[in-house]
């Protein structure tokens, strides 16, 4: 009788171990699958957005063309320059980019995106100088998309980097974004 009881205990122990291992594996699996769908680096459409934004014509006519990309360069090289309307080039370009981001990405608690962060920096071989930093909303959770665009100028590896980080709301995922875009177009059609 004692032997039977011992065998039963062993079997119960074995089943328990199998169940525990199974649960651990399932947790790992869930994390693995979830991770793949919630972060998107080097997003192609964000790059396109940044490239198109660079061509945007502002109201600031100065020495360079009034396009954002040229004004950012002018702000970096001669930050004291002024537009035709007397405003500082750097202030004007900062305000234009801010307005574009506000108008292009709808952020908020119940929106698809919770926040965004944008940085434009100039790099040489040894230094990095941040020209524009814009942040809005909440950018803290791990669900995001980001894209970076490099513009080369000068011969010795000098480049400007335009980086945009978009933070999804907690309840959003990349799938829900695709779904929303689908709905948006459906509505338009």
């Amino acid at each position: 009788m004692n032997r039977n009881r011992k065998a039963q205990e062993e079997i119960a122990g074995f089943v328990l171990i199998v169940v525990i291992v199974a649960i651990i594996l399932l947790i790992f699996l869930a994390i693995f699958i979830r991770k793949g769908n919630t972060r998107e680096k080097n997003s192609e459409d964000i790059k396109q957005f940044l490239e198109s934004m660079g061509e945007y014509t502002t109201d600031c006519n100065s020495y360079s063309s009034p396009n954002i990309i040229d004004l950012v360069k002018e702000c970096y090289q001669s930050g004291d320059n002024e537009c035709e309307n007397g405003k500082n080039v750097c202030i004007e370009v900062n305000s234009s980019i801010n307005e574009i981001l506000k108008g292009s990405w709808d952020i908020g608690k119940n929106k698809l995106y919770a926040g965004y962060f944008m940085n434009i920096s100039y790099y040489s071989n040894t230094t990095r100088e941040s020209i524009i930093d814009i942040k809005a909303g909440n950018c803290s959770s791990g669900i995001y998309r980001e894209g970076e665009l490099y513009t080369y100028y000068g011969g010795s590896g000098q480049r400007a980097s335009t980086f945009l980080f978009l933070q999804f709301s907690q309840r959003s995922t990349l799938q829900s974004q695709v779904f929303l875009i689908g709905l948006y177009h459906l509505k338009l059609i």
Binding site: D45, F49, S52, Y56, I181, G182, H185
Partner: peptide, 13 residues
């Protein structure tokens, strides 16, 4: 019968 819609950002000049 629309297919899947896709989009690209552009500068409209």
């Amino acid at each position: 019968n629309y297919g899947k819609t896709s989009f690209a950002y552009v500068a409209l000049c």
